[in-house]
Simulated assay, not measured.
Amino acid sequence: METCIVEGNISVKAVLLGKKRKVHKILVDAKKKDKDTAFILHKAKEAQVDITYMKREEIDALATGKTHGGIIAYCGQRKYQNLEELVNKKQVFLALVEGVEDPFNFGYVLRTLYAAGCDGVLVPLRNWTTAADVVTRASAGASEY
């Protein structure tokens, strides 16, 4: 089972709400008290996700970056939709994205397409798993929807 880490409120919330990947565990700063975090933890409890409260320094040691804001999630691989699921709508907006190699750029493209109302993205076969956190953060969570 391949696991990825997503960091920050926006990314963790998107993974929970998008329901395209299993969230195994959420680590949160025990002192983190804000409305967005409360919402995330509420949704995590609804989904029966294990929540571990830790010191900020412990989360810093586990995170890949320093902009996690005190919350990270361990997630499984993303589940993708079949093309048949998307084309059964009356009107469908699909985009073909080729030639993007940088995970930040890929995330920016996904965020733009999501904002434009895109239903699905067709991409060449490539494993973005190792860059899941970067793509999720760069897309402001849109990659999970």
Rank of each mutant, 00 (worst) to 15 (best):
T3R: 06
T3Y: 06
C4N: 13
I5S: 01
I5N: 10
V6R: 03
E7H: 02
G8Y: 00
N9W: 01
A14V: 09
A14W: 05
V15I: 10
V15R: 01
V15K: 06
L17S: 12
K19A: 13
K20S: 08
K20C: 08
K22Q: 14
V23P: 00
H24W: 10
H24E: 12
L27M: 14
V28C: 09
D29H: 08
A30V: 14
K32E: 10
K33A: 09
K33R: 15
D34K: 10
D36Y: 07
D36T: 15
D36H: 10
A38N: 14
F39V: 08
L41N: 00
H42Q: 10
A44F: 01
E46R: 08
E46Y: 04
A47C: 05
D50F: 12
Y53I: 06
M54L: 14
E57Q: 15
E58T: 09
I59Q: 08
D60N: 15
L62A: 11
A63S: 11
T64A: 02
G65A: 09
I71V: 10
I71C: 00
I72S: 09
Y74F: 10
Q77H: 04
Y80A: 09
Q81C: 08
Q81G: 04
N82D: 14
N82H: 13
E84W: 07
L86Y: 06
V87S: 03
N88M: 12
K89E: 09
K90S: 08
F93H: 13
L94M: 03
L94C: 07
G99F: 08
V100F: 00
E101W: 07
E101T: 13
D102W: 03
P103I: 04
P103W: 04
P103C: 01
F106R: 13
V109R: 02
V109Q: 03
Y114S: 14
A115Y: 13
C118V: 10
C118K: 05
G120M: 07
V121Y: 01
V123I: 12
P124T: 13
L125C: 06
T129L: 05
T129D: 14
T130W: 11
A131F: 12
A132F: 04
D133E: 03
D133T: 00
V134M: 04
V135W: 03
R137Y: 01
R137K: 15
R137D: 08
A138W: 02
S139A: 05
G141Q: 06
E144L: 13
